[in-house]
Design a protein around this nucleic acid. Structure first.
Ligand SMILES: [Mn+2]
Ligand SMILES: [Mn+2]
Ligand SMILES: [Zn+2]
Ligand SMILES: [Zn+2]
Lengths: 145, 145
DNA sequence: TGGCGAGCTTAGAATCATTCTTAGCTTGAC
DNA sequence: GTCAAGCTAAGAATGATTCTAAGCTCGCCA
């Protein structure tokens, strides 16, 4: 049980309920976190900004402050419920797909789209200097549209 | 000669003088642009932020405003004297190496380091949806140090 | 069941990088 | 030399994000 409550549980079922996800992450299931988790995880794979999630929540009748949206997105990222994707300076996207995969980024619309992990292959990665840890590899294919 | 003055000249010599680079890009060689070009291009491959270039200029006794540093970096980027690299939301890096290559990003120090183009190989790129134009492929290897 | 402290939420201020505005300088073609 | 187009710069404005600090809420425990 201990492992479950400390978060970082890698083998989350894709259809785990919002409540289960919060429990597994060791986060209290508050009204705000539950509502945001539902919006994020019950609508398929998503790439969303804090502002967009905030307005989506309000449109859905959920009263939550922007500060809490930011707090929650960061907590979800830390507990690996989400992944942060950086493709444009000055804007952060949060991705509900936490597996290793790449993205198409449509520069005009600001839309992000997954590229399945097996549709791109990276060969002969250079080893990190000093034997430092590689914490991730981000591949973005920019589309001029 | 026309082609030279309209910028986008791909075959710039690596040791072209700052003045030549501005001429080739079709930019007036003002005192500020010359000074910034020298700082950027006479010190090997660099990855630098606007703020950092600004303080570097001032330390070197060059009087230039931050607004002009931003303007200049963007003009250099448009004329392909520089390439913009996004690895962290809220911070833009400008790269004096405009050839296709990847980066190590040291998350703690905020340092960027080139990975030679031939040290990484990407196979079977998926075609862009709709036959849209791919304007670039960014590969960032994040180092947790 | 009620109390309580840790944890959470929030409005609004603050921060930070970047962009904009606008007025005054430069540059270079003629 | 003159003059318009191009350029610079101080400071205000912007926009995303973070911080502050004050008041709620949650859930464990008596
Ligand atoms: Mn958005
Ligand atoms: Mn910096
Ligand atoms: Zn994704
Ligand atoms: Zn580089």
């Amino acid at each position: 049980m201990d492992k479950i409550l400390t978060g970082n549980w890698k083998s989350m079922r894709p259809y785990a309920s919002a409540l289960d996800r919060l429990r597994n992450a060791g986060l209290r299931p508050t009204r705000q976190r539950l509502a945001l988790a539902k919006l994020l995880f019950e609508n398929g794979d998503r790439h969303i900004t804090a502002e967009d999630l905030h307005s989506e929540a309000r449109n859905a009748g959920v009263s939550v402050s922007l500060a809490t949206v930011y707090n929650t997105l960061h907590q979800f990222t830390q507990t690996e419920l989400l992944r942060e994707v950086v493709v444009e300076s000055g804007r952060a996207y949060f991705d509900t797909n936490t597996t290793q995969h790449s993205h198409f980024f449509f520069e005009k619309s600001g839309r992000l789209m997954d590229i399945p992990a097996d549709a791109i292959e990276i060969s002969q990665l250079p080893s990190a200097p000093d034997g430092a840890e590689i914490s991730g590899i981000d591949v973005t294919v920019r589309i001029d549209a």
